[in-house]
Design a protein around this nucleic acid. Structure first.
Lengths: 104, 104
DNA sequence: TTGACATGCAGGCATTTACCTGCATATAAT
DNA sequence: ATTATATGCAGGTAAATGCCTGCATGTCAA
């Protein structure tokens, strides 16, 4: 997994909205996705390009139409590497802070 | 939670390394963190500023030293909103793709 | 076969980002 | 008191980013 591409792809509201749009209905065409976004088609294409590069979206051509599908695998990998790892610290944080404030 | 700040904060290798450094030993000072990074102190300060803005790192002053602590809460919120939501689609993706390739 | 439709490609511009250097401030140590 | 240490603040630059417009290509439909 390429954490850099994944997080950068997710670090933009338009691209997160694209994921939500595909979550609502998977397999939409570029044009359909554009209908929900207030920007030029080419800008949407660029955003989708980053989502594809991060492997968050896969596409299939059907005639002249390009269909878009969510790929949730990278999200899960992000979870394994960047969320789960840090979860065990959740409860200890306050404790650490207090210790430090008391001069340890 | 501010997804934008969180993902943008995570979308940089230096900042992810900072989180890993703090995971290895929580409560490090700025100087200690700088020792592991090959860039000017001020650059590290800026990176930490973004991590703080995303609430991924909390700091405490002890005299002239600034101590840094991971806050894993935003990561968990990211998981709830951006990973868990999409997990149920994991198995259905291939099915969707095949359906589309067959002309639905 | 001609026109309409869905998309790609190339390039241009303004903003943001990631880095730097130089100087200032506050705390600790001698 | 004076010096050393830890950090902040201000500003400058090059590269990356996000948006656009104009034109090209390939597919469907009349």
């Amino acid at each position: 997994m390429d954490a850099d591409k994944i997080f950068k792809a997710l670090g933009d509201p338009t691209r997160r909205k694209l994921l939500d749009l595909l979550y609502a209905r998977n397999g939409q065409t570029l044009g359909e996705l554009c209908d929900h976004l207030d920007m030029a088609r080419q800008s949407v294409t660029q955003h989708i390009g980053l989502l594809e590069a991060a492997n968050l979206v896969s596409t299939v051509w059907r005639g002249r139409e390009k269909l878009h599908f969510i790929n949730p695998v990278p999200l899960h990998e992000v979870y394994e590497r960047w969320v789960r790892k840090f979860e065990r610290q959740r409860l200890s944080l306050l404790h650490d802070l207090k210790k430090e404030l008391e001069g340890e």
